[in-house]
Amino acid sequence: MKKTLMIIYCLLWFVGAANAQVEISPISKSALLPAYPISVGWDHTTALVFASKVVSVDRGHGHIMAKVEEKAPNLLLLKAGQRSFKTTNLHVVTADARLYHFRVSYDESLARSSINMARQQLLSWKELQLRDFALPAKELEQTGEAVLSMDPFLNRTRRQYRMRFGLQGIYQQQGLLFFKLQVENRSRLAFVPESLVFTITDKKQAKHASVREEPLDALLQQWENSPGVPGHGQNTLVVALPQFTLSDKKQLEIQLDEKNGDRNLRLKVRGRDILKTRNLTDVQPETK
C-alpha cells in the first residue's frame, strides 16, 4: 500500500513539474474585438441594421429579448426583458462571416435606439489609416473611383439566372489589388445584393477530396451607382484586397449573393489572371 502511494505521489510531482514549465502567452490587445456600446429599454425597441442577414445571436443573459425580423433578415430587434438589468454582452454573426460584439446596458433613452451597422462600418473605413500599406483611406476611395473609369482588359465571365457576372480587370497600387467587376441583369427583376465574398480555395483533385477555404477581407467595396442592378441594366463595382498570388493548385472564388433570392452568382479566377495585374501610376490624391 505504501509503495502504491509513493508511486502515485511521484507521478503527480512529475505532472506538476511539467505543467509549471509551460508558459502561456497573454492575449494581445490587438486581437480583442471592440465592443459597440448599445442600450435597450423596457418601453422601446432597439433596432440594429446589418449589411447581411443575421444567422446567429448569442445573449449574455436572458434579460435581453432578441428577434430577427422575418421579412428583413438583416434587421435585429432588441428589448429589455427586465428593468434595470446588469450590463452584459451580445454577439451577432452575419451571413458575410462577420462577428459583431456589443456591450448592452439598460437605458430608456431613445438616443441610440436605431443603429445602421453597415453605415458604422463605412465610417470606420473612412477613418482608417491602413497600417500595413502606404495608401490612406481617402486615397483608397479615390483609387477605387479611378479604377471604375478604366477600360476592361480581362474577360472572366460567368452567366447564370439570366445574369452576367464578370471580371474586367485587376490593378495594383502600394500593396493592394483592385478588382473591377461588372454585373449585367438580362431579366426584368432587379438584383439586390446581400453579400460579396472573396475566398481562396484548393482545386478539387478528386471527387471526395476536401477543399480548404481562406476568406479574404475586403478593404474597399465601391459601386459605380447605388448597390444592385435594375432590370435590364448593369452596374460596376471595385473591390480592394491586400496583394496575393495563387499557385496552380489554388483559385479565387468570388461569390455575390442576392438578398431575398436565389440568384447567387459565382466566379472563379485563376492564378494566371492575378499575374496579369496592371499598375496604377496615374492616380493622384486630390489636393485642396
Rank of each mutant, 00 (worst) to 15 (best):
K203I: 09
L219H: 13
E194Y: 02
L99K: 05
Q205E: 10
V15G: 08
V192C: 12
E286L: 08
N89S: 14
E213I: 04
N155S: 11
H91P: 01
W125N: 14
L216S: 02
P26M: 07
L140A: 00
R59T: 11
L76R: 11
V49E: 05
L148F: 07
L123M: 04
R186M: 11
T94C: 03
D151R: 12
K180V: 01
D96L: 01
L33F: 04
R159P: 01
L99S: 05
L196E: 03
P230Y: 02
T4W: 15
A134G: 07
K276T: 10
G60A: 07
A95S: 11
L246S: 01
T4R: 14
A47D: 10
S149F: 09
T4Q: 15
G233P: 03
D151P: 06
Q120G: 08
P26T: 09
S84T: 10
E286H: 12
S56Y: 13
V104M: 05
P26C: 06
H232L: 09
G233H: 05
T46C: 02
Q142A: 06
S149Q: 12
Q182R: 14
S114M: 12
S105V: 05
E145D: 06
W223A: 02
Q172G: 13
I8P: 05
H61W: 10
V40A: 09
V22H: 06
N264E: 05
P136E: 06
R158P: 04
I27M: 13
A17P: 04
Q21H: 11
S247V: 03
N89L: 09
I64W: 01
L256W: 07
A51F: 00
N89W: 15
S195P: 03
I115H: 06
Y9W: 08
R131F: 08
A118K: 13
E23M: 08
H232Q: 09
W125G: 05
V229I: 01
P215T: 04
L219E: 09
G62D: 14
W42V: 10
R158S: 15
G16I: 08
